[in-house]
C-alpha cells in the first residue's frame, strides 16, 4: 500500500502520444531511509495500441535501482469515452550516500507498426535528506 507523496509527478517522457510520469511515494520502505520508492505511470493518447512497452533504468555505481514487474506491457488505443488506461511500475532507488540522484532510462515500445527506442536522463528527484516524509 504505497501512498503517493504530495509532490507533483514529474513527466520524464512525453513523445509519440506516450507519457511517462514519476510519482514519488511519501514513505521509504520499512527500515530503509536510503531508498526512494518511485511509481512509474505510463499513459497513451495514441489512436493505435502501444505494445511491447519496456522501461529500463541505470543509476551511478554508488546507487542501486530495482524495477518491479510492470502491471502490463501494452496500452489500448486511446478512447475518449473509456477511462484512460495506464501501466504502473514500481522502481526502488537506493542512495546510501545521499548524493544528488541521476537516473538514465531506456524506453522501447511499438506504436502500431513502428518500433521506438527512446532514452533520457532524469534529475528532478526530491533531495535525499527529505526522503521518508515527502
Amino acid at each position: 500500500s504505497i501512498k503517493p507523496s504530495s509532490m507533483l509527478p514529474v513527466t520524464i517522457f512525453d513523445k509519440h502520444s506516450l507519457r511517462v510520469l514519476f510519482h514519488f511515494a511519501r514513505d521509504c520502505p520499512p527500515a530503509r531511509p536510503d531508498v526512494l520508492v518511485v511509481i512509474i505511470s505510463m499513459l497513451s493518447s495514441a489512436p493505435v495500441p502501444i505494445t511491447n512497452i519496456r522501461f529500463q533504468s541505470a543509476v551511478p555505481k554508488t546507487m542501486r535501482v530495482k524495477l518491479q514487474p510492470p502491471s502490463g506491457t501494452e496500452l489500448p488505443a486511446f478512447n475518449p469515452i473509456l477511462p484512460p488506461a495506464a501501466i504502473t511500475q514500481v522502481l526502488l532507488l537506493a542512495n546510501p550516500h545521499k548524493e544528488k540522484v541521476r537516473l538514465r532510462y531506456k524506453l522501447t515500445f511499438d506504436l502500431g507498426e513502428e518500433s521506438h527506442d527512446e532514452s533520457g536522463d532524469v534529475e528532478q528527484f526530491p533531495p535525499p535528506e527529505s526522503w521518508g516524509n515527502l
Binding site: A58, V59, P60, L67, Q89
Partner: peptide
C-alpha cells in the same frame, strides 16, 4: 566544452534482470 563527467554507471536494469 562539457566538464568530464566522472560518474561511473551501473548497467541498465529492467524488471526481468
Amino acid at each position: 566544452s562539457q566538464s568530464g563527467d566522472a560518474t561511473t554507471w551501473n548497467s541498465f536494469q529492467s524488471s526481468d534482470t
